[in-house]
């Protein structure tokens, strides 16, 4: 009867901030991010990418309690960049990888024909000529 809605475990409440940043008072160049309504899916992936960046000394995440729908991500950098920037770069990079992967999936799927599949690709896998951003990344070109 008074059970909270189940979707409250993954949908942000009204006005709830998705991320809270608290800088570490004892460790230099360190911050803890409290990421609301997210779990290991995001936490572990981001952690791995942050950790892979050369400026990062430490990165770890934890879900303090399985019933509490948030995780904590702790990042310490070497001081050349702030943890916030590092996290943002990692996310941007991840989105890049995902988009690349998405494009490749799309291409692969268009090669593999299934029964009832629409073979022609409405988007054209050949890519858009003259992309305005022209960064050489091909995840936009399907």
């Amino acid at each position: 009867m008074n059970a909270p809605n189940r979707f409250e475990l993954f949908v942000l409440d009204d006005g709830e901030k998705p991320v809270e940043v608290s800088e570490d008072t004892k460790i230099p160049n360190a911050a803890t991010f409290k990421i609301m309504k997210q779990d290991h899916t995001l936490g572990n992936m981001v952690r791995a990418y942050v950790l892979a960046m050369p400026q990062v000394l430490f990165a770890g995440y934890k879900v303090p309690h399985p019933l509490h729908p948030y995780f904590l991500l702790k990042i310490q950098t070497d001081g050349t960049v702030t943890p916030q920037v590092v996290l943002e770069q990692a996310c941007t990079k991840l989105i890049g990888s995902l988009s690349t992967l998405e494009a490749k999936f799309k291409r692969e799927f268009s090669f593999k024909d299934v029964e009832g599949a629409v073979t022609e690709d409405p988007y054209g896998t050949t890519g858009t000529s003259g992309q305005p951003w022209g960064s050489g990344r091909d995840y936009l070109d399907f």
């Binding site: 940043v21 991010f33 997210q38 899916t41 943002e88 991840l94 989105i95 995902l98 992967l101 999936f105």
Partner: peptide, 22 residues
């Protein structure tokens, strides 16, 4: 195909929301 593509898109949404939150 839709399941995989949606999954990837969903991950990107999550990351984008994180960036936006930052």
């Amino acid at each position: 195909q839709e399941a995989v593509m949606r999954g990837l898109a969903e991950l990107q949404t999550k990351l984008a929301n994180l960036i936006l939150g930052l």
